[in-house]
């Protein structure tokens, strides 16, 4: 009799299999839960030093109008009369005529400060994140215009559709309590800029 008890019946075997499957599911669920918890602590952002303003941010965001917008760091701006982020490479005139502007939606507002300085303010409701201004500003100016994911719009998808296609690897997860990657700062000071 003791020998018979120690034998495992088919029913016991199936029961054990079900238990194993449950454990498998539990393990998977814990992993997914962990993934979700981690995801909530971080958000997507663009590293401006890697971004090449390829215009994919404009097209690939799941939102109708991309959550990526141009950000203007005024502390780096030269307040140029001829801003290469605002004007076409060969403008007809240095005025606010649409034909002279590089921005396809007129999202940059040019305002006179004092001779010969002008300020450039981004209207985020019009900005589509194409990065044309970023190209112009970086190519000739101080690079004070750069793209950032705006977190009042971003859905923080687990798999960001822009990150998947970003050719420069500029998209990355950053801590949610420090959600923006801004240019300048200590590195600039060390270079005397």
């Amino acid at each position: 009799m003791p020998e018979e008890k120690s034998r495992v019946t088919r029913r016991d075997f199936i029961r054990s299999g079900i238990r194993g499957t449950c454990l498998l599911g539990l393990g998977g669920s814990m992993g997914l839960l962990l993934n979700r918890i981690q995801g909530n602590d971080t958000v997507w952002q663009i590293d401006p030093e890697k971004c090449i303003a390829c215009e994919k941010c404009m097209d690939h965001c799941v939102l109708e109008v991309s959550a990526v917008k141009c950000f203007h760091k005024f502390a780096m701006c030269g307040y140029c009369k001829l801003c290469t982020g605002y004007f076409e490479p060969q403008p007809n005139a240095l005025d606010t005529g649409a034909e002279n502007q590089v921005c396809p939606t007129g999202a940059i507002k040019r305002g006179f400060v004092e001779h010969p300085y002008y300020e450039y303010i981004i209207d985020e409701s019009l900005c589509v994140g194409c990065g044309k201004c970023v190209k112009g500003c970086t190519a000739f100016g101080n690079g004070s215009l750069f793209l950032q994911v705006r977190h009042d719009r971003c859905l923080n998808c687990n798999e960001c559709a822009i990150a998947v296609v970003c050719p420069a690897g500029a998209f990355k997860r950053v801590p949610a309590d420090r959600p923006y990657l801004l240019k300048g700062g200590e590195a600039d000071r060390s270079m005397g800029l």
């Binding site: 054990s16 238990r19 393990g27 814990m30 992993g31 993934n35 981690q38 687990n158 960001c160 990355k172």
Partner: peptide, 27 residues
């Protein structure tokens, strides 16, 4: 049982690591 648990846990960890790497580079 042990294999099931290990595979489940390993799979979940793999999924997590995979997602983390995807998130970090996106490409």
């Amino acid at each position: 049982k042990v294999a099931g648990f290990a595979v489940g846990l390993g799979g979940a960890m793999g999924l997590t690591v995979s997602r983390f790497l995807n998130n970090a580079t996106g490409r």
